[in-house]
Design a protein around this nucleic acid. Structure first.
Lengths: 197, 197
DNA sequence: GAAGCGCCTTAACAAATGATAAGCTGCGCT
DNA sequence: AGCGCAGCTTATCATTTGTTAAGGCGCTTC
């Protein structure tokens, strides 16, 4: 049985943005205009690696997997982004490079998408947009900082345990082999250290 | 023989900021007022791990080493910051937590320091400060993104080679065992893979 | 129910890395 | 010169992780 009253993704977006800055109605309308509503079925490729289009994403339902793709064709999971979370190829945009990762939907996913160039152009229009941009960058930084520290300080086993405690619900939605890649090990190795409790 | 005309660190700071946004004279003076000039001798501890004071740093001469300190007392190098580079415990400030890393001068270092809380308070005073804050966060994000990708996709050997090609001069200023820690391996292991060319 | 597929586990072996200890080298100091 | 120390290397062995291959389990599809 699905939710009989599906919440408006734009409502969720508005709430998320308001947590960063008080967004006056006129400016909110500009943002709302920029974001397009999109859907992806499970296993659908949302962003193709090497894409020239940079999009700011906001997931309202479902789960996205972000992955690097090396020359050998091997994937390494970079992040998982679920409900009410943002994602953006900020580094690529700043450096004016094509997006170097791909995005795949792990479940049927509903999300909002706005060209990052368009969003960044707003910075010059009104200070509140600049603030949103700062908060976006800071949020991404905090996320990456936590991950970086975890990778440098912890062993694979510790990283796994940490992930489970911090994302108990999310862990059940992610296939083991994708989680392993995210933790920086192989599926076999993860299975092994799980057995060792 | 030292430089007979030592450049003004504030001049370097101004140039660095101007690269991010056109900073009008009055606002520049506010920033300049906030930054204090400091020096550290080689091996001096600039920031003690767990410190409650969050500082925005700008190195004008020398080299700083940023390191995590785990419960067992073991250090892991998080970053090296040299001339004309910024560093800031943005994640800690955003989450309102004590700084979870330490900073040590690897050489005699001259730097400018401003309380991060003071800097962030400026965001509400003028849009140009907000822009500087955004650019600061974006820069830190780009730096961390590159590092993260390198850690996930590359082997220790590849990371070492990459570091050498991208920072040939810096590599010679960093002791091997500190570089090893930065690369996520031990000093012994680095020595080993160097021999294997 | 048989076949196919996705996901997970297990086993056996190879490779990479850690831990510990010992020794080498350059350099500053007295 | 002799000493002490910091930084680097080397050797040895233990541990972790990767690789490859095989099989199990549940689910869907025909």
């Amino acid at each position: 049985m699905t939710n009989p009253l599906p919440s408006d993704p734009y409502l969720a977006l508005s709430a998320a943005l308001q947590r960063w800055a008080e967004l006056p109605q006129p400016q909110w309308l500009v943002v709302r205009e920029g974001f397009r509503r999109r859907k992806a079925v499970a296993r659908e490729l949302v962003v193709f690696p090497g894409s020239q289009s940079h999009d700011l994403l906001f997931v309202s339902r479902g789960l996205l997997r972000f992955f690097y793709l090396d020359e050998g064709g091997r994937e390494t999971n970079k992040a998982f982004v679920a409900e009410n979370e943002f994602a953006a190829p900020l580094a690529s945009a700043v450096l004016q490079q094509p997006v170097y990762y791909g995005v795949e939907a792990l479940e049927e996913t509903e999300y909002l998408s706005m060209p990052l160039g368009e969003f960044r152009a707003l910075y010059h229009r009104h200070p509140v947009f600049e603030r949103l941009g700062r908060c976006l960058a800071e949020m991404l930084l905090v996320r990456k900082e936590r991950r970086m520290r975890s990778m440098l300080e912890q062993t694979a086993t510790e990283r796994y345990r940490t992930f489970l405690t911090e994302n108990p619900l999310l862990a059940e939605r992610i296939p083991q082999y994708h989680l392993a890649s995210y933790l920086g090990i192989t599926e076999v190795s993860l299975s092994r250290l799980k057995k060792a409790l």
